[in-house]
Design a protein around this nucleic acid. Structure first.
Lengths: 328, 328
DNA sequence: CTGAAAGCGCTTACAG
DNA sequence: CTGAAAGCGCTTACAG
């Protein structure tokens, strides 16, 4: 690979001039600009991003961090994020499972990335708080109300309320909520909404109806055991709320396989509303989250923070969700 | 952030010694090693990866490039890849849609990544060939038999043959194959297998039964129109092969919505066999690809190429697929 | 066993 | 308008 030095030699100018041309500095005389451009062309010169970033102490790159790519909800968010970053002069990398918090701390501190977007509950509060104190950070789809941070999400309390109300309206009384990590604020808020709906309808809240898979989304048939246990305890489950579309899909499969001994007529509502709820048979009623817009807004907000050198600022950006009634 | 310089100052040694400690050079005296370690600890020093990579002209990082993350098949591959890279001393970044071929060329030439794994038909043959001539490259799940390249994949000809045979065995005669990009070798090979099975069974090959969505996996109901058109032409479709699980899911949805006017009894086999074929109702019969192993092997092969400084070598690594019969 | 120095490939005050 | 020089934070022959 050729470097600025070789380009400079070929164009008979200094490396400073080459660099200026590269960075569209208007002060370069047209003649010299031409010479440099020709040399770049002839040598097929491509700037070394590593060197550039090291020198500038910034990379024009952001990272989007997610717990796993195996959830279609994230795919929608990523699509929106990619659209928002297009033509912004920034790049986005996807932080994958397996990278640790200190990886990001490191990437930020060494200017490999200029800011990060954190999807869902990828790390604990303390870690995120520390990152947010020192670097531009935006949370997407998850948040912590008790720390100063910028986030984009739906109103999860209202979403939980809306979902529960719909089931109650249909006559459900024993509504099981298959939920996620307790540390997650979206889990907590949806639960609050669920309780409010119950209370409004004069139904007692029963903590035993709140369950969660030991890990993940219940891929390996975990949900079967959990639900059957409730049935064994004599609970006549007539409504089901699932924290993710994947969970809903696995529950449906369990019912279909007759592995879960639920009644035929169980009202089910899933959160996220990805294409999984559409292709399911029966189609799953869902609280549809605006995945694309969540991703889009997160990026726009992060770029704004980066450009304004904002750190440790906060802001709540709430997007609308939608109840889409299908067959369950 | 502190640098080697500050660590050196605090430890009363030279930066060279600090660097040696950082790189586990055994020649450093124990006393000095201790002093440096303490200084690192006290200053919370973290090496600057950018500087290190620039100097060493290598990054211990590989990229896995995929057309989109919105396909669960890739999630399985990524999982295997992550497992293979764990404890190897290398990192993996995910190349997302929207990055262009020259992005990778650039990352490779400037040592941001030491090698790449290309999933599916993300770029055209010429581009990949050029990359492969200059850098360590492994193709996964897609390949080009007419260029020198290392790849990991299933035997797609046999997969197409196995799938078609199964449908023919069931009595299907008008088997529509919803396929993918013509440039893709997996598409071509599966088609070859399909034709072989037909020929063996004495069934004429009819090109009009080979169709494909204009783009993607038929998300937006494209497949409905395509299939209905065939029905309108008087073709009594009694078998269906789909190039991806997503396609199968959308076809099922179309049938269920009565948007596609297919007979009730259509044998359907999908390629990939992700969890989508399991949760579908009816469950979709599938040629299951070993996603995890594909990812795992790809990484192992790439790391081997990088460590041996192999470039422009070739190798075929064929993993077994499996026909899993479900309800379709 | 250790340090001074060169250099990876850039950018950017500074001086002219 | 341009160039020489310093420097981003590392590593590594080389000399001692």
């Amino acid at each position: 690979m050729s470097s600025v030095k070789e380009v400079a030699a070929r164009a008979n100018v200094s490396v400073a001039t080459v660099s200026r041309v590269l960075n569209h500095d208007p002060s370069v005389k047209a003649v010299n600009r031409q010479k440099v451009m020709r040399a770049i062309e002839e040598l097929q010169y491509k700037p070394n991003v590593l060197a550039k970033n090291l020198r500038k102490q910034s990379s024009n790159t952001i990272a989007m961090v997610m717990p796993t790519i195996a959830n279609p909800f994230y795919a929608g968010i990523v699509r929106g994020a990619q659209e928002a970053i297009r033509n912004s002069g920034y790049h986005m990398i996807l932080g994958t499972t397996g990278w640790q918090a200190d990886t990001y701390e490191n990437m930020l501190s060494t200017s490999q990335v200029d800011g990060i977007i954190i999807l869902s509950s990828w790390a604990n509060k303390k870690v995120i708080q520390k990152l947010n104190e020192n670097y531009p950070v935006v949370m997407c789809n998850e948040y912590f109300d008790d720390i100063h941070i910028t986030y984009v999400a739906i109103d999860n309390r209202k979403a939980g309320y809306d979902a529960a109300c719909e089931l109650i309206r249909r006559g459900c009384r024993n509504i099981v909520y298959i939920t996620g990590s307790k540390k997650s604020s979206s889990v907590g808020d949806r639960l609050t909404g669920y309780k409010e709906a119950l209370s409004e309808a004069g139904i007692d809240f029963r903590p035993e109806l709140i369950v969660k898979p030991h890990q993940g989304n219940g891929e390996d048939g975990q949900l079967v055991g959990i639900l059957n246990e409730l049935v064994d305890q004599g609970i006549a489950i007539d409504g089901l709320l699932t924290h993710s579309d994947l969970m809903a899909a696995f529950v449906l499969k369990g019912i279909r396989d007759k592995a879960i001994r639920l009644a035929e007529e169980v009202g089910m509502i899933s959160f996220d509303g990805t294409f999984l709820t559409e292709i399911s048979n029966p189609g799953v009623t869902a609280i549809v989250q605006p995945a694309y817009e969540l991703g889009f807004s997160s990026v726009k907000l992060l770029l704004q923070k980066i450009q304004n050198k904002e750190i440790n600022t906060s802001g709540r950006h709430i997007l609308d969700h939608q109840l889409v009634v299908r067959e369950t």
